[in-house]
């Protein structure tokens, strides 16, 4: 703080310069911050402490990613994508059916949740602020965000597996769609609301109906934001295991190996394969689990990345 002293002193009348004990005058010496005072040392220590904690929090991330590459990478080959899961003592094998199954189940979930979610968001974004129905719906969506994923599975089990008489890809898709829905609703509503008011007013001024306004102005403008939400929801759904355990179950065979594609059959998915093989005592199966985990994480990260690209386009 000697700098401040240096700047101040020339401006002060000479009689004050040496006598800082006069009432009303600032003692510049007292204001100086010594690096050795306990409070400054404490300050520096806490900064280091917080930095260390933050970096420690990132250690597991790097450990997980490194281990996935290390343990999952060496097993990576084309066969992994084209072959069926190995039985306990078998060598080699792959999990092509699980990759396909994951895509099928997630597609079913998207076909249910995207239309309902975006339409709900249309309704929410057009509703007045005091609307009772809109706030109920918004509350419901928020409750669903914190909904334990396994309960979505329990619900689909009760509503579909028991009534349809068996485990199926459809039940798995429905369970995942419950988890995707709130993300899509909330992000889409946000995206539609972000559309500049001028554009909306211009359309209304031209005599557009609400529907025309929505389809020709709001949705096309908001599409990057909506896609961000959809991609994030997809990424989450692809990695979910708990709701699939007892809805889609698992299968060691290709979907539709009986000649035609039947969505009412138990279906394999990457996440459940990892869970099953992680607990297996056979080396080939555990290393298969690591490879499957690598592929699942790559899929999830790619959809996250696409979502982020969309959100960047929205800002520009």
């Amino acid at each position: 703080m000697a700098v401040i002293g240096g700047q101040l002193k020339p401006d002060l009348p000479a009689k004050f310069a040496g006598d800082s004990n006069m009432p009303g005058q600032i003692n510049v010496e007292e204001l100086e911050k010594s690096l050795l005072k306990p409070r400054t040392i404490f300050n520096q220590l806490l900064i280091v402490f917080v930095t260390v904690l933050t970096l420690t929090a990132l250690v597991p991330l790097f450990s997980v990613l490194w281990m996935l590459l290390w343990k999952g990478g060496h097993n990576l080959s084309l066969a992994v994508f084209t072959q069926l899961p190995p039985s306990p003592m078998e060598e080699g094998g792959g999990f092509g059916n699980a990759i396909l199954g994951t895509f099928v189940i997630v597609s079913i979930a998207s076909m249910i949740s995207i239309p309902i979610g975006v339409l709900t968001a249309c309704f929410l974004s057009q509703s007045e602020t005091g609307s009772g129905l809109a706030s109920t719906v918004r509350f419901a969506a928020k409750v669903l965000t914190g909904f334990p994923s396994i309960l979505a599975g329990v619900f689909a089990y009760g509503a579909l597996v028991l009534t349809m008489g068996g485990y199926s890809a459809i039940a798995g898709g429905v369970a995942l769609s419950i988890l995707m829905l709130p993300t899509i609703v909330l992000t889409s509503e946000e995206a539609i609301r972000m559309v500049p008011k001028k554009m909306k007013e211009a359309a209304i001024g031209m005599g557009a109906t609400d529907t025309q306004l929505m389809w020709m102005v709001l949705l096309p403008t908001a599409i990057p934001g909506i896609m961000t939400g959809v991609m994030l929801a997809l990424a989450r759904a692809a990695g979910e295991t708990a709701p699939l355990l007892f809805t889609a179950l698992f299968s060691n065979y290709w979907l539709g190996s009986s000649g035609h594609i039947d969505l009412r059959q138990p279906t394999a998915s990457l996440a459940v394969l990892i869970y099953n093989f992680a607990g297996a005592p056979f080396d080939n199966q555990t290393s298969m689990a690591w490879t499957a985990a690598l592929i699942l994480v790559v899929m999830v990260l790619i959809s996250n990345l696409i979502g982020q690209l969309f959100s960047r386009r929205q800002i520009n």
């Binding site: 239309p115 339409l119 709900t120 719906v137 669903l144 619900f155 419950i178 109906t209 929505m214």
Partner: peptide, 30 residues
């Protein structure tokens, strides 16, 4: 266009109601 408008608004509204009912339905079902 007016008819479309009414229909579309109805569809939006029913999806919203569906979302709200979903929570209630899950609780009741379990």
């Amino acid at each position: 266009q007016q008819t479309y408008d009414v229909i579309f608004r109805g569809v939006c509204r029913s999806s919203a109601v569906l979302t709200a009912l979903l929570v209630a339905f899950i609780v009741i079902k379990i």
